[in-house]
């Protein structure tokens, strides 16, 4: 029993070490005073200061956040509508085709989606003159497109777990279908929508491939910038940036998790 549990514990430690030591080393080296990213030269927070002064990085970060928020919001809107249609409209005609079309961006290789979107944007520009410049708009559309699928799946699974007679009861008590959606359906799927928004936001913040395809000159997102900088060697300010992103995402996930837990408790009964 002891040997067994020792084995289990060492596997656990090894597993976590494998996952987190790389992240930890990034955090540790972000406080490195040395200009060389891999040589320890004493503790310092100078790279965080440098980071703020680097306009290239701050503008890329701002662009990424702007795209993330917009794309996540749009994807949550459309994804929720699609999820409701999938879970509540029964067996309407061409339902399986609709399901396939909604969910296919999840399994489509990003390279292909990216290429297809780029071709679309280029030919649209030739036809109607829009989009004149590729950047915020095109990346947002690209991110929305594939994030819809994730939101739809989350909302749909939440709805299928929910008792359909809740909505019927509200209708029976005099609620018109639209009111019932506002009063009953939306509050109950709100945790799923929040989870979907956060997932969409993270996916957008994380994406390199799609953004690289559909972006134009001057429209560099944070991952694109990091990727291009790393090609010239890892600099300590990138470590500082990565640390900030880790902290930001951890806090965000913790908040989302606690909200979802509280709302989930409300609606579980």
């Amino acid at each position: 029993m002891t040997r067994n549990s020792r084995f289990v514990i060492s596997m656990l430690v090894f597993g976590y070490a494998f996952l987190y030591i790389p992240l930890l080393s990034v955090v540790v080296y972000s406080f490195n005073d040395s200009r060389l990213a891999t040589v320890w030269g004493g503790f310092s927070t100078r790279w965080y200061g440098e980071l703020l002064k680097n306009e290239q990085i701050t503008s890329a970060l701002f662009l990424s956040l702007k795209i993330g928020v917009t794309a996540a919001t749009l994807a949550t809107l459309f994804g929720t509508i699609a999820g409701i249609a999938l879970a509540r409209f029964g067996r309407f005609r061409s339902r399986s085709l609709f399901t396939g079309l909604v969910l296919s961006p999840m399994v489509m290789p990003e390279v292909i989606t990216g290429l297809a979107l780029l071709l679309l944007f280029v030919s649209l520009q030739q036809l109607i003159g829009w989009p004149g410049q590729r950047g915020f708009g095109t990346i947002t559309i690209a991110h929305t497109t594939f994030a819809i699928a994730y939101v739809a799946v989350i909302v749909q699974s939440r709805l299928s777990a929910m008792d359909e007679s809740l909505e019927e009861a509200a209708m029976d008590l005099g609620g018109r279908p639209f009111r019932v959606m506002i009063d009953i359906t939306l509050p109950l799927i709100a945790p799923a929508m929040l989870a979907g928004w956060l997932l969409a936001f993270t996916l957008s913040l994380d994406d390199l491939v799609l953004a690289s395809f559909v972006s134009g000159p001057g429209g560099s997102t944070l991952p694109m910038l990091i990727f291009s900088k790393v090609k010239l060697g890892v600099t300590p300010d990138i470590n500082a940036l990565a640390t900030l992103i880790i902290v930001f995402i951890s806090v965000g996930v913790l908040i989302a998790w606690s909200i979802a837990r509280r709302m989930g408790k409300d609606s579980s009964g």
């Binding site: 019927e168 009861a169 029976d172 509050p187 579980s268």
Partner: peptide
């Protein structure tokens, strides 16, 4: 008549009490 216009109410088997 749709359900929301009928002077009829229903008690559901699952009770369908709004959890929120």
């Amino acid at each position: 008549q749709p359900p929301y216009e009928r002077p009829v109410n229903m008690m559901f088997q699952s009770y369908a009490i709004f959890p929120h």
